[in-house]
Computed example of a mutant assay.
Amino acid sequence: MKPIVFLFFCLLSCSITFAQKNDYIEATYSCSLSFDIDLFLNKIPVQERKEAEVYLKNSLDKGLILDYSLESNDSISIFKLIPKINNSQNEGSLIVEEMLAFDKLPTYKFINKKEYLKEIDILGKKFIIKEAIPIIKWEIQEDVKYILSKKATKAIGYIGNNPVTAWFFNDILLDNGPYLLHGLPGLIAEAEFNINNVNQHYVINSMSNKNKKVKVKFSKKAKIVSSEEFRSEIKKLQQNAKEDRVDLD
């Protein structure tokens, strides 16, 4: 009986080690963007729609893909853009350029405090958006698949009224993921959702465990604002820019 008991404990210890809590993870994700062209065209002046339609279709045909990195431990994470455009992307795409401008500085997510800080540098002004992390009510499904040769389980949730489909690793016990996603019992490896009529599909490309600390560094000169305050600040900057152009004319 002793060999059998010993084998049982060996198998038990292996299973416990396999699904262990990770202190630090580095991962990279690709984000594919897609959208309904008609929704965008409705916001564009009629005289400019034909030209815009051609441009938007070309952008979608070539593919809109951004790459991000995630550094995370069990309480803090840094999600930032990797400043490199994939060959499949349209390098002249205004949509990609806007995403690059918005995400060129990191997003810091504080899981324990349930808040995030998003750095933004726009029109020569630096801001830090400080907000609560969105609460996501997840429902874990029975579906499973393998991503990077690791078992992942499907979950469905909502960011506000926007549905989110995610796949999380069963053996990477880290409550985190790309963008502002969190709240599952494992690292989110894939996620798809729609925000502001743009569909975003994140897929993990690589992952490594390292003995490092997550270092949070952001500009002390930046103005800390809420999302609503940031929108007001942008309107002021845009108005000032218009007035400056009028003066030049």
Score class of each variant (00 low, 15 high):
216 V>D: 01
49 R>H: 05
13 S>H: 07
165 T>K: 03
21 K>H: 11
122 I>N: 07
22 N>P: 01
216 V>W: 04
182 H>R: 11
209 N>C: 07
56 L>E: 08
108 Y>C: 02
73 N>G: 02
194 N>W: 02
1 M>G: 14
41 L>V: 08
126 K>P: 06
100 L>E: 15
9 F>P: 00
177 G>Q: 05
111 I>C: 07
247 D>M: 13
30 S>H: 12
45 P>C: 02
65 I>H: 10
157 G>M: 07
190 E>N: 06
66 L>K: 06
138 W>R: 08
35 F>V: 01
93 S>C: 06
248 L>I: 11
109 K>N: 11
187 L>C: 05
115 E>N: 10
90 N>P: 00
173 L>P: 00
105 L>M: 13
201 H>K: 14
194 N>D: 13
224 I>Q: 03
154 K>F: 00
34 S>M: 04
174 L>Q: 05
55 Y>F: 12
185 P>V: 01
21 K>G: 06
196 N>E: 15
27 A>D: 11
234 I>N: 07
79 F>T: 02
143 D>W: 07
120 I>W: 05
19 A>P: 05
81 L>Q: 07
174 L>V: 02
189 A>F: 13
126 K>I: 03
102 F>C: 04
106 P>M: 03
46 V>R: 11
49 R>Q: 15
162 N>G: 02
107 T>A: 06
158 Y>S: 09
199 N>R: 12
172 I>S: 01
33 L>S: 07
